[in-house]
């Protein structure tokens, strides 16, 4: 099969970018989208043009590295997939495919289709953990956790940190990403002692990084490769309010607040 690519090319973070057109012929419909780009890149290199930079690693939909916006949709046309799980059979022979990087102020473009998503790491560093020292843990079975809670926490924990939620949201909001981690840890008894300070500091960091706000359009969950649910945003909002109340009550009682 043959497709026409319209690819965003940008030399570096501060260079202006533009769309370039490439014809990709002799493709196999069973190729993955990234394998198609490999082929295109090989052909570009063979004629002395610099290959298209794009982020990828595991190529099995779990590492969260790949991040292309394909025909306006993060990760491509399928449901619950990462870019690497998009296959050429999802397109028709002769299609024109527009490939753009994820666009958001907190995700600056580094080169071509590669963006910097370190803002996510900084949010995690601000509180996305349980403060437990290595070696200090009690037996794994010492606190029973109902299957429902464990499964729910797992639903949230599935997030691969790819940033598609931000890329799809009209406000470039990171609420789905942040709420997945906040919810996973606030659901589990191990994460509950720190739940107030965690949600306050992670949300503060999220705001500081310049992400937009949630207007509940649902686009984030619709493109999420792991189908993380909007319900976790609700949960996080509730956790946030609870943390504010806790703070307010703590202050009123003259105790030190929990926000730390």
């Amino acid at each position: 099969m043959k497709v026409n690519l319209r690819v965003w090319r940008q030399r570096g973070p501060d260079s202006p970018g533009e769309f370039k057109n490439y014809e990709a012929a002799d493709l196999n419909p069973n190729m993955s989208f990234l394998e198609m780009l490999d082929v295109v890149n090989d052909r570009l290199a063979s004629r002395g043009e610099e290959p298209i930079a794009f982020a990828h690693d595991c190529r099995e939909g779990i590492c969260g590295t790949c991040c292309l916006n394909i025909n306006g949709k993060p990760h491509g046309p399928g449901r619950a997939i990462a870019t690497c799980q998009t296959y050429m059979r999802s397109f028709r022979d002769g299609d024109t495919i527009t490939i753009e990087p994820f666009r958001a102020k907190p995700f600056p473009i580094l080169k071509d289709l590669v963006v910097d998503r370190s803002a996510f790491d900084r949010i995690m560093q601000s509180g996305g953990y349980v403060s437990v020292r290595t070696g200090a843990a009690p037996d794994g079975n010492s606190i029973p956790i109902s299957k429902e809670i464990a499964d729910r926490a797992m639903d949230a924990a599935q997030c691969i940190g790819c940033g598609a939620c931000v890329a799809a949201c009209k406000n470039a909001s990171a609420m789905l990403f942040v709420s997945a981690k906040v919810s996973q840890l606030s659901l589990l008894p191990q994460g509950r002692p720190e739940r107030h300070r965690r949600v306050l500091s992670m949300v503060a960091k999220m705001d500081e990084e310049g992400f937009g706000n949630c207007t509940v359009t649902g686009s984030c969950a619709a493109v999420c490769p792991k189908e993380v649910s909007l319900d976790f945003i609700t949960r996080m909002n509730r956790d946030y309010l609870a943390a504010l109340m806790h703070e307010a009550v703590g202050r009123a009682a003259g105790k030190e607040g929990g926000a730390g």
């Binding site: 769309f19 916006n69 306006g72 949709k73 527009t98 753009e100 666009r103 958001a104 102020k105 907190p106 799809a168 949201c169 009209k170 406000n171 470039a172 909001s173 310049g210 992400f211 937009g212 706000n213 207007t215 509940v216 359009t217 649902g218 686009s219 969950a221 619709a222 493109v223």
Partner: peptide, 26 residues
């Protein structure tokens, strides 16, 4: 803040995946 979070938009704008008309034009 929402506008500032995406200074450069996609070439054909942000597509409304799963988003209702009402939610996009509040």
């Amino acid at each position: 803040q929402n506008k500032a979070a995406r200074p450069v938009n996609y070439v054909e704008g942000t597509r409304p995946y799963a988003a209702s008309w009402a939610s996009r034009y509040m």
